[in-house]
Amino acid sequence: MPIDRMSPSRVGGYGHSFAEKHQRTPDSMPQGASASSSSSWKTIETLKSLPTDFPTSKFGQSHVDKPIGLLQRKIELQDKGHSTKNIDKTYKDSMNDLYQATAYGQMSSPNETGRNRLTNWSDKILETNKDMPFLK
C-alpha cells in the first residue's frame, strides 16, 4: 500500500517512487566541465530518461525536448563565456510549464499507474532543479 507523502506544492499523485534511477553524465561531457555545466548535463540526462523510466501515454520525449535544448544551449554559451540570462529565464519557464503539465496529468489520469508515473516525473523535475526556483 502506497504511503501518501504529498507536499502542499504538489497537485495530485501519491508521492512514492517505484524506481530510483541514478543520474549519470553523458560520455560526451568535457573533462574540465564546470560544476554548473556538470549539473546541467545531469539534468539533461534525467530529462532524457523520464519517458523511458516512467512511460506514460500523456507525456513523451517531445515534452522534454525544449528544456533539454535550452540546457544544451546554456552549456555552449557558458563554455564560450557568454551570458546565459535569457536562456535561464526561458528554461525556468519551460520547466514550470512541464511541471504544471505533469501536475495536471496527475489529477486527470484515469488510473493509479498513470498518476504514479507522473508523480515520478514531477519528483524528478523538482529534484534536478532544486537549486533553480522555477515554479510560479
Rank of each mutant, 00 (worst) to 15 (best):
T52D: 14
T52I: 06
T52L: 07
D53T: 13
D53V: 10
F54R: 09
F54H: 11
F54N: 09
P55L: 10
P55V: 08
P55Y: 07
P55K: 07
P55C: 04
P55Q: 06
T56V: 15
T56L: 04
S57C: 00
S57I: 02
S57M: 07
S57E: 12
K58F: 06
K58N: 05
F59V: 03
G60S: 10
G60N: 10
G60D: 11
G60V: 02
Q61Y: 11
Q61E: 14
Q61K: 15
S62T: 11
S62A: 15
S62N: 11
S62F: 05
S62R: 15
S62V: 10
S62Y: 07
H63L: 09
H63F: 09
H63A: 15
V64P: 10
V64Q: 06
V64Y: 02
V64H: 06
D65R: 10
D65E: 13
D65L: 09
D65G: 00
D65F: 03
D65A: 15
D65Q: 15
K66G: 02
K66S: 11
P67A: 05
P67D: 07
P67W: 05
I68A: 00
I68L: 05
I68M: 05
I68G: 06
G69K: 08
G69S: 12
G69Q: 11
L70C: 03
L70V: 02
L70D: 08
L71V: 03
Q72I: 02
R73Q: 15
R73S: 14
R73L: 13
R73F: 06
K74Q: 13
K74H: 00
K74V: 01
K74F: 02
I75H: 03
I75K: 08
I75D: 13
I75M: 10
I75W: 01
E76F: 02
E76K: 09
L77Q: 10
Q78M: 12
Q78N: 12
Q78L: 13
Q78F: 01
Q78R: 14
D79R: 14
D79M: 03
D79Y: 05
D79G: 15
D79Q: 14
D79A: 11
G81A: 08
G81T: 04
G81P: 02
H82K: 14
H82T: 05
H82Y: 14
H82M: 11
H82Q: 14
H82W: 03
S83G: 02
S83E: 10
T84L: 03
K85V: 13
K85Y: 11
K85D: 12
K85C: 00
N86L: 12
N86C: 06
N86E: 15
N86H: 11
I87G: 04
I87Y: 09
D88T: 12
D88G: 02
D88Y: 01
K89P: 00
T90Y: 04
T90H: 12
T90L: 14
T90D: 15
Y91Q: 00
Y91K: 01
Y91P: 02
K92F: 00
K92C: 05
K92P: 00
K92H: 01
D93S: 12
D93V: 07
D93C: 01
S94I: 00
S94R: 02
S94D: 04
S94M: 03
M95P: 05
M95V: 09
M95K: 06
N96W: 14
N96S: 12
D97I: 04
D97N: 14
